[in-house]
Amino acid sequence: MEPYQIYGLASAVLFVIGIAGLFAARHFLKKIIATNIMGGGVFLCFVSFAQRDALAFADPVPHAMVITGIVVAVSSAAFALALTRRINQLTGEESFPNDK
């Protein structure tokens, strides 16, 4: 078994866990965490392909893309966090009110 197959499997699992969490978790914070787990899965997929295609060193392009992706994802997450905190500040809610 190649490492990229192991991590590829893990990346798909993480992505699915993230989606499931986004649907199933109710607390804002958990939903934000879920989106970041989705992101983790996607980045893992990138990097495992980079390792698969390595010559002298691993493919740097996916690495650079993942670094960019991480920063973008954290920016989005921080924004989402600010929104949840503001909502909580104004209403005391910790989840979407019409979530069953």
Partner: peptide, 30 residues
């Protein structure tokens, strides 16, 4: 482990570190 040291530092510093700090700070609210 996958040979992506830069990504590793970025992940630890930004995704885990910085976002983690923000999340921990947010815990005060809930």
């Amino acid at each position: 482990r996958l040979g992506a040291v830069d990504v590793g530092i970025a992940e630890a510093a930004i995704a885990a570190g910085f976002l983690g700090v923000l999340l921990i700070d947010a815990l005060r609210d809930f």
